[in-house]
Simulated assay, not measured.
Amino acid sequence: MLTGDLVRLRPLEPSDAELMWRWNNDPEVGRWMFGSYPESLAQIARRFEELPRNSYAIAFFGIEPLHEQRLIGSVRLRDAEPETGAAELDLRIGDKEYWGRGYATDTVRVICRYGFAEMRLHRIRLSVVAENVAAHRVYEKAGFVVEGREREAFRRDGTWHDMVLMGLLEGELR
């Protein structure tokens, strides 16, 4: 298990599928998330039955509070390439009871430590909707810096939004 001050990261289990399905269907949780077309619980359950083993290419974890066995979100490093030493970070705190209490920041620190130390990454990148102020704050606290902007790259509720590209280099984690 990977642990921080507030969270423990653990591999996802097939039994986590129903909770993920609920978060996928909560408009508040999914407001700024990239999403595909709606999926049924059966489709998500099937995908969770077939989750690939964590590897260099993708490390996908459930997030639990350090002293509880309760899934509150998920985090992953994906598209890792040994040639570039880079991976993309995705984070979701699905349990709204844990929003704004430091769990996202601690999760980012834990997964980035793992990426740099165990996966031997040199950089971790992410993209976040410009209006997602809470996410920007989390990433900046961990040391991520703005590296660019994709104009009108995300559409939600009929409106186009810019995406802010952020990056963190090995040695910059706070």
Rank of each mutant, 00 (worst) to 15 (best):
W23S: 04
L71Q: 09
A45E: 13
L173S: 11
A86E: 14
Y114R: 05
H136W: 05
V164N: 03
F116V: 11
W99K: 05
G4T: 06
E118H: 13
G100I: 01
S36W: 13
F60G: 00
G30K: 06
M20G: 03
L77N: 07
E88S: 10
S36V: 12
R78V: 09
Y114E: 08
H161I: 01
P27E: 10
R149T: 10
A134R: 14
G115E: 04
E170Y: 04
G115D: 00
K141R: 11
F144P: 10
M20T: 09
S127V: 05
Y98Q: 08
L91N: 02
H136I: 02
L12D: 04
E152G: 04
I72S: 06
R76I: 03
Q69S: 15
A130R: 13
E170I: 07
E97V: 10
A153G: 05
G85Q: 12
L91I: 10
I111F: 07
E140D: 05
I124S: 05
L66T: 06
R22C: 04
E97S: 13
A142T: 11
R123P: 00
F61M: 10
P52I: 14
V108P: 02
Q43D: 14
A17H: 00
R120L: 15
W99Q: 08
S40I: 15
F144L: 11
F48K: 11
G35Q: 13
L126E: 01
G167H: 03
G143W: 07
K96L: 09
E28A: 06
E13T: 14
M1K: 13
V146W: 00
E88F: 09
D5H: 08
V133G: 04
E49G: 15
Y56L: 13
A142E: 06
I58Q: 13
M20L: 15
L168I: 06
D79R: 08
V7F: 04
R78T: 07
R8I: 07
A104N: 02
G102K: 00
I111Y: 06
R155D: 04
E28T: 02
E49W: 12
R156L: 01
